[in-house]
Design a protein around this nucleic acid. Structure first.
Length: 419
RNA sequence: GUGAAUGUAGCUCAAUUGGUUAGAGCGCUGGACUGUGGAUCCAGAUGUUGGGGGUUCGAGUCCCCUCAUUCACCCCA
């Protein structure tokens, strides 16, 4: 039979087997973030579209072609959130969570939407785990944020992560660099691909990220942003690097690492694993964003991890739980014992066991078959004559061995129950 | 948005240059097994061949359109 409806392109169901591992990953994130004193926050999935246009950047691909955007019944232009930072900052300002002199540290776990063409590691609805630390400009925080990201991946068993690091400067020095890039690329513009010629106009930094071979060759000779950083950005970046070095955290300096959102300043980073083309997480500083959203002139920094990408990597590396959860007991009874079977199941569940029961008092044979298919570890066979002595048959479904046991052995008693 | 590949049973896949009634394994249902599951053997059910149109005596197979999936590009998590 064909289903009448199927899920929309680029979105999907997360089925129980997968979701179980999914939750384990989330729980590890919650536990670790808690130790770094981050607090969970949940923001709406819809926000004013304008907010993302302003923060992510009018010229960014996210805004230009990837936002889920529509008018609601009140004629407001709303967007399904394409990323998590702007909403958290908005919530921070709207709810007056800023206490001067204190860093506000949040984490979130939720789904994001980008109207892309789906492919490996990319979906229209995808999930991110992210953190944001607002109100502190120290390079020490940069290091801690990076450390936290790596520690999380390590805890999941990912040892071979690669950290890419760069600084994208600030509004003081980046224009200088853009200018230098333009001056470098214009004489070579005929060698650049079509897209890059457009980028040359709008955002020459993006050329650095181009994957066309011809462009790559030219890019290799292009000036490096590191040489154009202002004093403040340069010392900040040097400090970040030197602390990472002394902590023994290895990274690859990638001066072509340009992240796709316009609000980034100073330190930017991405994490990938060897052999994987995609980054599984990334982030950076955004020292102008809070002010852009109408708040005080506060710095901020954060990262986001792509759940689907992380999950796929863990799956490939065999780092997920395989065993499914199975019932501890399967209760079998005959038609005269329906009530007692229900009560027994409830008592066992109250004790914390996973209990399944047959919902029709069919033949013993077919109930055992059910028990077998449920993969229950043990079957409890209730029989009138044994119940008189408060006993049931306990059958081990793996070995097939069975014995009569008193209900007290199961840590329950039907005595005193209203039956 | 651009390009390519693929859509056959619940799942994984067959089906000769276009040829008659579209098959197999797994799973499912039942039986062998008259209150004890699994193993084995036997039997059985299930398809608008993604959808629509066309070519042909004849289409799962060829052509067109459409939808979906996958992969790549752009870009990103």
């Amino acid at each position: 039979m064909k289903p009448k409806y199927t899920s929309l392109r680029g979105v999907r169901d997360i089925l129980p087997d997968e979701l179980r591992n999914w939750r384990i990953i989330e729980d590890k994130a919650r536990e670790l973030f808690r130790r770094y004193n981050y607090r969970e926050i949940e923001t709406p999935i819809i926000e004013p579209a304008e907010m993302f246009v302003r923060t992510v950047g009018e010229e960014s691909d996210i805004v230009r072609k990837e936002m889920y955007i529509f008018k609601d019944r009140g004629d407001r232009l709303v967007a399904l959130r394409p990323e998590g930072t702007a909403p958290v900052v908005r919530a921070f300002l709207e709810n007056n969570l800023y206490i001067p002199g204190r860093v506000a540290k949040f984490y979130y776990i939720g789904d994001m939407f980008r109207y892309d063409r789906p492919q490996a590691g990319r979906q229209r609805e995808f999930h991110q785990i992210g953190i944001e630390a607002l109100g502190e400009s120290s390079y020490i925080l940069d290091v801690e944020v990076i450390m936290l990201l790596l520690e999380f991946l390590e805890e999941l068993g990912l040892a071979d992560t690669i950290l890419l690091l760069n600084s994208v400067g600030c509004p003081n020095c980046r224009p200088e660099y853009s200018k230098a890039l333009r001056e470098f690329f214009i004489p070579n513009s005929s060698e650049l691909c079509e897209d890059c010629n457009v980028r040359l106009e709008n955002n020459p930094l993006r050329i650095l990220d181009c994957k066309v071979e011809g462009c790559k060759e030219i890019v290799a000779k292009a000036p490096s942003i590191i040489d154009y950083l202002c004093d403040d950005c340069r010392t900040h970046f040097e400090n970040v690097r030197s602390v990472l070095d002394s902590l023994g955290i290895r990274y690859v300096l990638d001066t072509r690492l340009v992240r796709g959102l316009d609000y980034y300043t100073k330190t930017t980073f991405e994490v990938t694993v060897s052999g994987l083309d995609l980054s599984i997480g990334g982030g950076g500083r955004y020292d102008g964003l809070i002010k852009d959203l109408g708040g005080p002139d506060l710095p901020g920094i954060g990262f986001a991890i792509g759940m689907e990408r992380l999950f796929n990597v863990l799956k490939d590396k065999n780092l997920l739980l395989k065993e499914e959860e199975v019932p501890d007991y399967f209760v079998i009874y005959d038609s005269t014992l329906v009530t007692k079977a229900i009560i027994l199941s409830r008592l066992l569940r109250y004790k914390g066991f996973i209990v399944e029961m047959s919902y029709t008092a069919k033949s013993l044979k077919s109930q055992l078959k059910e028990a077998d298919r449920s993969k229950a570890k043990k079957a409890i066979i209730m029989r009138e004559d044994l119940l008189v002595d408060n006993k049931v048959i306990l059958k081990d479904m793996t070995t097939g061995e069975q014995e009569e046991v008193g209900l007290d052995k199961l840590e329950v008693s039907l005595i005193g129950q209203r039956i």
